[in-house]
Design a protein around this nucleic acid. Sequence first.
DNA 1: TGCCATCGTCGATGCGCTTCGACACCGACG
DNA 2: CGTCGGTGTCGAAGCGCATCGACGATGGCA
Lengths: 335, 335
Amino acid sequence: MVTINDVANAAGVAPSTVSYVISGKRSISPKTRRLVEDSIRKLGYHPHAGARALASSKTNVLALVVPLRTDLNVAVVMEFVASAVTAARAHDHDLLLLTKDEGPAALQRVASSAIADALMVMDVETADPRVPMLLALDLPVVLIGVPDHPAGLSCVDLDFTAAASACVAHLADLGHRSIALIGPSPAVYRRGTSYATRFLRGFDEAAKSRDVRAASRSCAHSYEAVSACLDDLLATDPGLTGLVVHNEAVLPGLLSDLRHRGLRVPEDISVIAVCPDSMAEQHAVALTNVAIPAEEVGTQAVEMTMRRLAGHTTPEVRLLGPRLTRRESTASPRS
Amino acid sequence: MVTINDVANAAGVAPSTVSYVISGKRSISPKTRRLVEDSIRKLGYHPHAGARALASSKTNVLALVVPLRTDLNVAVVMEFVASAVTAARAHDHDLLLLTKDEGPAALQRVASSAIADALMVMDVETADPRVPMLLALDLPVVLIGVPDHPAGLSCVDLDFTAAASACVAHLADLGHRSIALIGPSPAVYRRGTSYATRFLRGFDEAAKSRDVRAASRSCAHSYEAVSACLDDLLATDPGLTGLVVHNEAVLPGLLSDLRHRGLRVPEDISVIAVCPDSMAEQHAVALTNVAIPAEEVGTQAVEMTMRRLAGHTTPEVRLLGPRLTRRESTASPRS
DNA sequence: TGCCATCGTCGATGCGCTTCGACACCGACG
DNA sequence: CGTCGGTGTCGAAGCGCATCGACGATGGCA
């Protein structure tokens, strides 16, 4: 292994000088700097991460807690992770992956072993048991999602309440008077997953204020569940003309089921989805959607984390405004 | 921060004794052990990862290089990552996430900074430029996928050649005489992605040996691409009765397009997919499939890595046998 | 009772790095 | 010419842990 001493010897300077060249924490003469940098390159020197962490109490690692369930949108999670790791690397940090399954203890472990400098936590629940623990941790923490009581933690997410509003407004503007929300699986609500709850609230409020009849159902992935859910909705209100789908996994099954029923989209029924654009464009009838800006959220999360690490201590809550793209799946209902 | 010294003081022993209690590398009297363990628990002691890495040259971290493209199966990648991180934790290791985008330099960096103890690399290409670098690294490496010249690297993957064979055999056994493969997007082949190439080879060989007419097409995600692909295939051979789909993203669009054409599955055309079981069951017509055992592969990859770390130096190549599940989407062609 | 082997514990050392105080050198200024 | 303030470099002191050799205690055996 090539150490800082090797570099120092090769360059004919003291190890501390090499360190200062690397960190830039003291001024170095151009001559010495060049000498050292050349030696570093020639020897292929990379500082030992452990030693560095020990001496500086900084690991240059960000820990990300992801939900590895399959009942929520895998594509979105993946996109988020991808942008987070990219953003982290742009700040010279690496990404450590933790699973939600390990529970609060894992957070404790990571914090007190000094494995990471900060935590980013996905899939936050409205009353998340991890929040109190995270607060006690004295590591910078950024939540993806907004619990009921963030209480000093930074949060970032799509503004799901506004997103729901936008969906309702779009359908209401088109003239729909009876719409329904098809939400994530019951398990998601049962956990009190933050975004699901916020979306539902936004949906109900917007429907009320726009004076639109609104129903909502939770729906599992399976084809049967989707079908039963539609049966139920149509039986309850035969005048139903608009569907807001906040459950990406269900889209293919839903669309094919509608077709089976002889319901054409958008002539007989309008469908608006909350999903990534790529997914919206992928269907036979391109879907009007509110985009889930996973990439943006990931980048922002890292950005906020870095600010915290840089000393910015005040927690902030950033809610990204929804972006609705009209495509082929929504239209005015036939009167 | 609570250190090993604090624990030693609390327990009234030497720091080294605490260390031996933790590592179990020397025998400790039951009395002392209990004393120390109690202190550890009481103080909430966790060894400092950096210090530990420095002293022992072990980080207890596994680095995983994942492809963060969207043109390959996100769900499978995710499932793999999930099982890998779980398996790693079961061996008291953490998972560091690297992206393929960072290229070979990132591998170099991780190795020489002693950030991780071993590397696991996904999305391997037939002539992967990273292979020579990985060989030079003298870290344990496990590839997910099989390059043309593994040359001393461990590999694990589904046996895609056998998987293709199984698909062809199933259709041939049912009496199909003309089948087609719908493969991943051209970009995947262009990169020489290992599994795509191996599947294609298996498909061609099996078709030849079973004396079945076989075509193959590469197909992008978009609905248009799928449609064009089917146009092409049906024009080329109107007698086509079987489809092998090795491109999960395309399934929803493909099935709905077939329906549009008035082609019923499986009465008019049989469809067999290579995809996770959950995805196969999700469609209106449950799909006969060869499962992608992402979870199994992830676990095996970690297992192999741990064996390497434990001193098992001989590289091994493990190809998992395909498992075909018959569901509703395949049947004998009408004569 | 005396000797030796074994078991359990201790102290010292070093892993590779950052960081702090010290110091040598230089030019500028009185 | 002497002094002072910068600037650039150095040496040393740890960071928290694992590990090795050493050593005291204990028990078995003659």
